[in-house]
Amino acid sequence: MKLAHTLDHAKWTFTTRRVERSRIAGSDRDFSAARSGDLILAHVEKLGQHLRVQLPCGRPSLIFPGDAVVLACGARYAPDQFEGLAEISAEGADLLAGGGCIGRMVARNERIKPATRLMPAARLLDKAGRTINLADFALRPRPSRSRPPVIAVVGTSMNSGKTLATAQLVLGLRRAGYRVAALKATGTGAFGDYNEYSDSGAHFVGDFTDAGMVSTYLQPLSRIKAGIATLLDAADEATCDIAVMEVADGIFQRETAALVADPWFGHLISGLIFACGDAVAAAGGVAHLAQFRLRPNALTGLVSCSPMASAEASAATGVPVLRKSDLADPAEAAGFALRARARLERAA
């Protein structure tokens, strides 16, 4: 009764959005056994970098010492903020991401504050005594015969312009008359990208959390690929014509690097956009991707803000540079879909 009361008044975070709360029947304090995705009730101990958590309804909520929050145990890789592991100590833990990721911080960008500290209170269990995990509420794999073509968006790093490019291309494709899925293949659960995709009018929005993962950092590649496949099947079920899929962080990041290098990825995608900050990064990225027989159809990101940098990047790579307004232009966006459809037809 006391647990239920606490949970009713706790701030449930965005990563727990798919959880059926009625399934929670008990708890334990075996935090050392917590694994990625397990649901944790914790109390805010000391505010640090994060002053807010993200709620399932899509708004941020201020948090205060003493507040009860429900989050998922997970790792995080964010060069602009933290690196953290899916480890929790009964003595305390870190709020690794405001979307609802609790774990142990192991590295921090020196420009930001220490992580907000949390005091774990309970690991949540079902009536059979099993740990409640986000994977229990994931979209069910429904293998589809006709997955939509995929335009992948990768970049040099966090904050290189991938999310903006994804959202703007979604907008352009929707304007051109396509039913569009916006997907986030990797990263750590948060509503920022999710909301931006939705605001652009995507007909289906899904991320790795919908596939059962709070974060993809340190997850096996096979699980990440299965998650992408599940999201694409869901996009097909939502009768989407095409999917735009953002892959988090830079192409040297552990999971992104593995995904990009996997021939499965090359077969999966029908188009590729590379977001970067300058011409040198563009040249390096295009050369790196070429090792895996991947060639971007377009460059975008911060480089596209400067006509001079764009000209340099285009000259160095032979790949056109598109601004966000270009991606949102239905005439440009339709080209991605038409090219993708043609590629699928040739493959068939």
């Binding site: 056109p320 005439a331 440009e332 339709a334 043609a342």
Partner: peptide, 13 residues
């Protein structure tokens, strides 16, 4: 050139 590309991509369709 931008418009050429836009018109040409879907040419087969």
């Amino acid at each position: 050139l931008k418009w050429v590309n836009r018109h040409a991509i879907g040419l087969e369709t």
